[in-house]
Structure formats: C-alpha cells, structure tokens
Simulated assay, not measured.
Amino acid sequence: MMKSYLLGLILACCALSVSAMPINFAFDGGSASATGAVGIGSYTGYSGSASLDDGESANFTFGNAAFVGYGDGELSIGVNFISPIFGEESVTGAYEIWSLGFIAGGKFAGGSTIFDYIAGDYVGSAELTLDPFDVKMQCGACFNFDGKITNLGSVNTQEVPEPLSAAFLGLGLLAFGLTRRQRR
C-alpha cells in the first residue's frame, strides 16, 4: 500500500515540475569601434553557439583585434547574434593600448549588456559579458576578447499544459484513487 502512495506522489510531482526549454544562442562575427585611437588596426569577429537552459552560461572568444599605434578612450565590441535574436549587441568599456607591432600592451575594462529575446513560445533575457584584461607587455599586437553569454531566464508564453505533464498528473490521481479504493 505504501508503494502505491509513493508511486502516486512521484507521478504527481513529475506532472507539476516545470522545465525550461534550452535556448540556442548563436553569433557570427561582430565589430569594434574605439575613440581616441591613433594608428591602424583590424578586428576579426568569431562564430560560436551554445544551447543554454535558464541560468546557464557558456564561455567564448568573441573576436581578436590587431593594432599598431596608441589608443586611450572607449572601446565598443559588438557581437552579431543570429539566434535567438538577429542583430548586434555591444559592450563598451574604457581601454588603453600601445603597440609597435612586434610587442604590445594594453587593458580593457570589460563590461556587460542585457538583452531580450523571443525563441518560439519562449521570451526571456540574456546577458553578454566581455572579460576585462590587463596585459603589461606581450609579443605580437593581437588581443583576444573573451567573455560569456548567460541565459538569465525564459517564460513559456503558451498557457496550454504539455501532454506528458497532464498524463503524469492523471496517472498520479489514478494511483491515489486505486490506493484509497483498496483500503476499503
């Protein structure tokens, strides 16, 4: 009899549990713009993707900048998202850089931005974060821009329960009913 109660409780709990759908975050390329730079440079945006549940993060190298010259001001790094949104999200932070081509140094304050998305029946928010760096001196004039994407959370906009949840709830109630009937 205790097994029947336990089975009913487990099935009912399975019916009431809510699981979010993993959201696919994908990006392809990006851009960089700076104030206060004197010199020549280029930025190469990378590609990447990850399926993230609510609260999960994935680390990436979003791009690489090569620069010869001097700069001091604001640096904005854009990431071109292709899923779940279409468009560029940018992170802006203070920077200082110097480079002779074969040796370089610099720092970037990093930062983050929060953006909203719609993915099928789910709406939510995510955060794009770029890590700070402080390089005193290195060989070469290239700097990587590392960071992460965090799925802050999503909500299913459809109010219709999933068939599996309704089935678990029904089985749980049936098990409770049968157990009660067996007692009599």
Rank of each mutant, 00 (worst) to 15 (best):
T44W: 03
F62H: 01
A119W: 08
I149Y: 00
G48V: 08
F81P: 00
F143L: 02
E88T: 10
G110S: 06
G124D: 01
F60Q: 03
A37G: 10
Y95H: 01
A58L: 04
G63Y: 00
N151D: 09
I103K: 07
E96H: 11
C142Q: 11
G73N: 02
L100Q: 12
A58R: 10
I114H: 02
I97N: 06
G48K: 12
N144L: 10
S33F: 08
S49M: 12
L100G: 13
A119G: 07
V18L: 12
A37C: 15
I77N: 01
W98E: 04
G45K: 00
G55D: 03
S99V: 02
A26C: 14
V123P: 00
A141I: 05
F115E: 02
N151K: 10
D54R: 06
N156E: 12
V79H: 03
G69S: 04
T35V: 08
Y70R: 13
S31E: 04
G30F: 03
E56Y: 07
S49T: 13
N24Q: 15
I77C: 02
I77G: 01
D54A: 15
L75Q: 06
D134L: 11
A65S: 11
S99D: 06
F25Q: 08
D116E: 12
G106R: 01
L128G: 01
G73T: 02
E74D: 14
D131K: 09
N80V: 06
D146R: 11
D131M: 10
S49Q: 15
S33C: 08
A34G: 10
G39A: 07
G36S: 07
G153H: 02
D134F: 09
G71R: 00
I114Y: 02
S42Q: 12
D134H: 07
F62V: 04
A104L: 08
N64P: 02
F67M: 07
G110K: 06
F27Q: 04
